[in-house]
């Protein structure tokens, strides 16, 4: 019995330690934008992702698509972590043979965009008008009009999209599909 208690205590202490560690880390947690140029081959995304899981890095979002160069793709990761984590993420990504270039983008001069599709409930004509008006204000586009619903496309930075979503919540949101952020630095 004693032994079991001991073990339990040990586990408790360990969990506590872990928590304080996490807490300490989160003190300096920040969201970072990492832009990566990779060879456009099957398995590259998996390699990058398996690296994130294995090293315990937290990803908020990933976007992948073709780049300006043929055969090369660009991946944009939004990563949460302190400076040390950011350094490890970039270094470990750089080690992958398929990865050509890794850059942590300067948030002050970076344009960040994501695309979001929202299907929202329409109860009556008046509500429809309101939604169309809101969409207009947020520079969104109505993609589809159904009998009881509207599908809206909106692009922008995550905070704009989030505030649009919270405005639509009152109407009843049926479905949301988001792409995650992609980003590019301004020429300064």
């Amino acid at each position: 019995m004693d032994h079991t208690h001991e073990t339990i205590n040990k586990v408790k202490i360990e969990t506590q330690c872990l928590r304080t560690k996490e807490f300490k880390r989160s003190d300096r947690m920040k969201s970072h934008i990492i832009s990566t140029l990779v060879e456009n081959r099957p398995g590259v995304l998996q390699k990058a992702l398996s690296l994130f899981t294995r090293r315990g890095f937290n990803i908020d979002s990933i976007t992948v698509g073709e780049s300006e160069t043929e055969d090369l793709a660009r991946m944009v990761f939004i990563v949460n972590g302190d400076k040390k984590i950011l350094e490890q993420v970039t270094k470990q990504l750089n080690k992958l043979v398929d990865v050509i270039k890794v850059r942590s983008l300067n948030p002050e001069i970076t344009i960040k965009r994501e695309l979001c599709l929202i299907k929202v409930k329409v109860e009556n004509e008046q509500k429809r008008g309101e939604i169309i008006q809101l969409t207009d204000i947020f520079k969104g586009i109505i993609l589809d009009v159904g009998e009881n619903s509207l599908t809206v496309e909106i692009t922008g930075n995550p905070s704009k999209i989030n505030s649009f979503i919270s405005l639509l919540k009152g109407f009843g949101i049926k479905k949301i599909a988001k792409t995650g952020s992609t980003a590019i630095e301004r020429d300064v």
Partner: peptide
């Protein structure tokens, strides 16, 4: 094998 060995190989 490719999936399994991704985290334990250089390439």
């Amino acid at each position: 094998m490719i999936g399994i060995t991704m985290p334990i190989t250089k390439h």
